[in-house]
Design a protein around this nucleic acid. Sequence first.
DNA 1: ATGGTTGCTTAGCAA
Length: 255
Amino acid sequence: MKVATWNVNSIRTRLDRLLAFLDREQPDIVCLQELKTTAENFPTEAIEAAGYRCAVHGQRTYNGVAILSREKPVEISRGFGDTAWDDQARLVGATVDDIRIYSAYFPNGGEIGSEKWAFKLGWIERLRQFLQENHRPKERLLICGDTNVALNESDVANPDKWADSVLFAEPARDAIRGLLDWGLVDVFGRLNPRGGVFSWWDYRQLAFPKGDGLRIDHVLATEPLASIASEARIDREERKGKQPSDHAPVLAVFG
DNA sequence: ATGGTTGCTTAGCAA
């Protein structure tokens, strides 16, 4: 089973790239983030024509997540089921072939110390609580998406420069470690322990040509799936060319 | 040096 996760930064702008990606990679599951549109305006027909079903949790202008799957998604969930945390469309879940899958767009966090920063840390803690209440580490479960956090020094090209940013500050890394402590594995990190591979480069200041990247997109799997992961890679080519997303897709193969 | 780019929506915000 091949799984991909990709922050497309607007599904409408990136539709042609997505369709070419689906044709080239033939993934079984694709988790998308930052759709920046409603479910009503999501390009469901074009994606179904490519052979995928869609579970969409959309929102106008901001956020928005989806799961694309070859097989029919069932038990589709949107958000945590907690009105205190569900104003923004950042989490969609579906069961496909007895695997529980979530596509997640973690909050960016704005600036350290801001309200958005507190929201980011609270949201990740809310996700940990959601897992504790609804799932078990022995289940076959995947959380894929833009975590907006780099976990390790080797996941940041210039760790000193980013040490005090919302993407790499210790409290954010600690929050992610809380998810790992519950029972999730950073699949790419396990299969590529040397690091130095990134998934996001800022559009500004020539970050991509300068190589100033971070690995902030993750395939997180419970051990029953992580233990059968055979390959994980990042499609860096997708960051090149005309109208790229600022994120590259992360792919993992199970079994 | 507080810069720079992209997308949505339409001048300002978010990333």
